[in-house]
Computed example of a mutant assay.
Amino acid sequence: MAETTARLLHLLGLLQAKAVWTGPELAERLGVTTRSVRRDMERLRELGYPVQASRGLGGGYQLGAGRALPPLLLDQDEAVAVAVCLRLAAGGTVAGVGEAAIRTMTKLDQVMPASIRAQVAAVQEATVTVEYQAATVDADDLLVLARAIRETHQARFDYVARTGAATSRRIEPYRLVATGRRWYLMAFDLDRDDWRSFRLDRMTEVRASTFGFTPRAAPDAEEFIRRSVHSGWDQEATLRLRCAADEVRDHVGGWGRLTPVDEHSCELRVGSHDVELMAWWLLRLPVDFEVLDNEELVAAYGRIAQRVDRLTAGR
């Protein structure tokens, strides 16, 4: 009986981890026969879990939506990850999630073993979250897109580009990417027959389709979004930094492209829609630099220098 109960818990965890499992896949993971898998599925249904089964290509077992949310089975690493993410979500960029995240943290804390609670506490005590203005996204839109990605279903939405142009998009969604300030979707645009990136805060009327799709060979999502974000800037500049690239790589992060020149210097390519903001941001770098190709950025530093002179006059 204990072995059967443990297997049912393992089976429930597998169903929660992946959208659809075939009988042979589950039998291999559980170390039993497909007949045992069918019996275990019936036991889960008797316990009230909405297990669904479908035949044919792409068919299998999946955990459907029921009237009650079944208990989630989390291992130690998953519990720590969830607790830390909930803390960040409490002050994050998804509209309406903060209060729900706090309630969920409270519930999770009540059932966490002492060892896991200590790990979460250690991470939280060592972390400081600096607030800044970020573009918030609709939680329902985020969930619709995440579910469409998981189930490989097409999606549709209305979109307003940076230029103000409004369009309707029909896409195959592949990845959601959070940059800290914004959420992006990497998708294949069916009408334009090409890969595109979309800001979630510019979407409206997001809905998933019932049409499935076969995943294409996709580019690396992080690199694709980084290139998309950095393209089309109103202002771009190349700087010569007086240090090796590795010395400033952590300071630059994903907001610029570093190219080593020699062991004592490197070049940084950056862009922005506001030359003044770019000038102030670059002053955060811990090394001196030379602007190679943007006279407007040089002029912005002249204005900054004049302001500093006024502020320090007579001191």
Rank of each mutant, 00 (worst) to 15 (best):
A2M: 10
L15T: 03
L15G: 02
Q16Y: 03
E28V: 11
E28R: 05
R29W: 08
T33E: 13
R35G: 10
R38S: 13
R43T: 07
E46I: 03
P50D: 02
V51P: 01
G56N: 10
L57N: 12
Q62I: 08
G64R: 06
L69H: 09
L74S: 09
D75H: 05
V80I: 13
A83T: 05
C85F: 11
A90Q: 12
G91A: 10
G92M: 07
A101Q: 01
K107I: 08
V111G: 05
P113E: 04
P113I: 13
A114R: 15
I116R: 09
T136V: 06
D140T: 10
L143H: 11
R147N: 07
A148V: 05
I149E: 02
H153W: 09
Q154H: 15
F157N: 06
R162W: 10
A166G: 04
T167L: 11
S168N: 06
S168C: 05
E172H: 05
A178K: 05
R181S: 15
R182F: 04
D189I: 02
D191R: 13
F198W: 09
D201L: 06
M203T: 09
V206K: 05
R207F: 12
A208T: 14
F211L: 13
P215M: 09
R216Q: 04
A218H: 10
A221V: 08
F224M: 05
H230L: 06
S231D: 15
S231Y: 13
W233L: 11
A237W: 07
L239W: 03
L241Q: 06
C243Y: 03
D246W: 14
G253C: 11
C266W: 06
R269D: 10
S272D: 08
D274G: 05
V275N: 06
E276Y: 11
A279K: 02
L282E: 04
P286Q: 12
V298G: 09
Y301A: 09
A305F: 00
D309C: 05
R310W: 09
A313K: 12
G314H: 02
